[in-house]
Structure formats: C-alpha cells, structure tokens
Simulated scan of single mutants.
Amino acid sequence: MRDAHPSQTAIMAAASRAAHLVVDGEPYIFRDTLAATLLGGQAEELVGYHRVHGGHIVLSGTRAQVTARAAYTERRLGDRFEQYVVLGAGLDTFALRRAPGRPPTRVIEVDHPATQQWKRELMAAAGLTTPDGPVFAPVDFESGGLMSALREAGLDPGRPALVSWLGVAMYLTEEAVAATLAALGRLPRGSELVMEYALPPGLRDERGAEYASFALAAAADRGEPWLSFFAPDEVSSLLKQHGLEVVEHVRQAGCVDPELWRRQDGLRPADLCRLVRAVVTG
C-alpha cells in the first residue's frame, strides 16, 4: 500500500485466487472460497476481467502463481504448527477459512498498518469478522520492527511457528529482505519459513520470461516495482547467514501434485519465482 491507497498487488492476488474457481476447470490447484467474498463489490468486475481476458499470460500466470504457492504453504502448515505468521498478508483468507474442529492455530498477519485497516473494513463489510480471525501485527518491512510487532501480537517465543512470506520479497530492497531474515532467524528453533523469491533474467524459463516481460512493467506502472532478484544459491547463502537451513527450493511446477498440471485449460507453471523452505537452526 502506497499513499494510503489499497495495494494493487493484494487486490490482484485475491482476485486471481477467486477467479481460479470460476475461470479454470478442475482439478483445482487451490480453493480459496472466501477471496471473492472479501473483495466484496470489486469481485464481480475483477473476476469478470479474468473471464474475458483470462488466457493472457499475465492473468493465467498470476492465477498459477498465487494458487500453487498457497497450496504448497498451507499443505506444509497442516497440523504441524500452533503458530502461523503470514508476512505481507494482504487479503489472505486462511484464518477465515479454517475448518471447525481442526487443531487451533494462532494466525498472526503482518502487513503495513494502512493495508490492515483496509482489510479490517473489507472483513466487516463482508461479515467475516470472527473471534477466531487473524491477529494483526502492523509493520513496514522497509523500516524494521518485525520481532517486536510479533511479540506484541502474542507470538509465543517458546513454540515453533510456520512463517509464510509469499509475493513480498520481490517488492523489497535486498537490504530489507536481509533485515527480515535476520529477525526471522531469532524465532524458536524448529520454526520454518516458506519464502517466495524472484529469479534474475538468466534463470527464468521461456514462460517465466514472457510473463515477466508484461508483469514487471505493469507492477512498476502501478507504483509497486520489483526491486530484488536472487539466484537459489544466493538465497541459500543469505538464509544460512541468518540462522536458517534450507530444506528445499521448489519450482512452481513442483508446488503441487504433477497431476494437477495435466489440464485442459490454459493454466501452466512458469519458472519466474520459486519457493524456498528453510528451518531455524539457531
């Protein structure tokens, strides 16, 4: 969010998760059944745009990206962790979709204060405000203060947490990425991080390069340019430097069962961004 305007990145990601259930056929990669509800009056227009232009690589590529990364991360969460920290949560709906009766998980959403206020308003308008909803921890990633914000939000320093950091790092400077990882390295031993990062041009596949040729320019035009790009070995080195041990790097194609990519529609994986899963060892 810039200049108190809603984050276009958060809106587009939520719209893409909602559109996946309307535009793309089964098998679904990920089911976000509340994204459209949270978007409220904007949902019809945004999903309608996917209906009309959904075959364009930016729209189909974004649907593939946001659904694959969410599916991987929420599968990793499962019932393994009692604490789930969502960095740059935007319009994430996990805390609102949790099935009744599943083991309790404390969900802490970290984002810019203005983004969180906007989300609160959307939740209230949609009737999605519940006692079991997310705990909000306001943070500006470029300014720091992550750990103090998590403590104030009730993070238990004695229990491991899963941290998801999806669709955020590419919008930050390398210095801000490193500072955030330094903070996460102080989480309890056994905590895990799932982080999405963008590849530099020479490491992208053909579809990733085509997607980037449209998406990066569009992001810059809306005032949210991509600022950092990392090779996998650079990410591994940075994580190790801050007390996190890499378990795996995951291409978009590997985020879900390969059978889910055997599709009749135009949804295809691209190698532009990857996920890395790492464990706090300190």
Rank of each mutant, 00 (worst) to 15 (best):
R2Y: 07
D3T: 11
A4M: 13
P6L: 00
P6S: 00
I11T: 05
M12P: 00
M12S: 08
A13N: 10
S16V: 00
A19E: 01
H20L: 00
L21D: 00
V22R: 13
F30V: 06
R31N: 11
T33C: 09
A36L: 01
E44D: 15
E44W: 04
H56V: 01
I57C: 05
G61Q: 05
T62R: 02
A64V: 00
A70W: 09
Y72P: 08
Y72R: 15
T73V: 15
R75S: 14
R76V: 15
L77N: 05
G78F: 09
D79K: 11
D79F: 07
R80A: 15
Q83M: 08
V85F: 06
V86G: 04
G88T: 05
G88K: 01
G88Q: 00
G90K: 05
L91S: 04
T93N: 09
L96E: 11
R98G: 01
A99L: 13
A99M: 07
P103N: 03
P104Q: 05
P104G: 00
T105Y: 04
I108M: 10
E109H: 08
V110N: 07
A114P: 02
T115E: 12
Q117R: 15
W118T: 03
K119E: 02
R120A: 15
E121S: 13
G127D: 12
G127V: 11
G127F: 10
L128S: 04
T129N: 10
T129Q: 15
P134M: 06
G144C: 04
L146I: 09
S148T: 15
S148P: 07
R151P: 05
E152I: 12
A153K: 11
L155E: 01
D156W: 04
G158I: 06
G158R: 14
P160T: 02
V163W: 09
W165G: 06
V168M: 06
V168Q: 07
M170Y: 13
E174V: 08
E174K: 14
A176Y: 03
A178R: 14
L181F: 12
A182G: 12
A182K: 14
G185A: 08
P188F: 01
P188E: 05
P188A: 11
V194E: 06
V194F: 12
E196D: 15
P200H: 02
G202Y: 06
E206I: 04
A209Q: 12
E210P: 04
E210Q: 15
Y211I: 08
S213C: 09
A215V: 10
L216N: 05
A220R: 12
A220K: 12
E224Q: 03
E224S: 02
F229C: 06
F230K: 08
P232A: 13
D233Q: 15
V235R: 09
K240P: 01
H242R: 14
L244W: 05
V246D: 04
V247Q: 14
H249D: 13
V250G: 08
V250D: 12
Q252D: 07
D257P: 08
D257T: 12
L260V: 12
R268S: 08
A270Q: 14
D271V: 02
L272T: 06
A278E: 04
V279D: 03
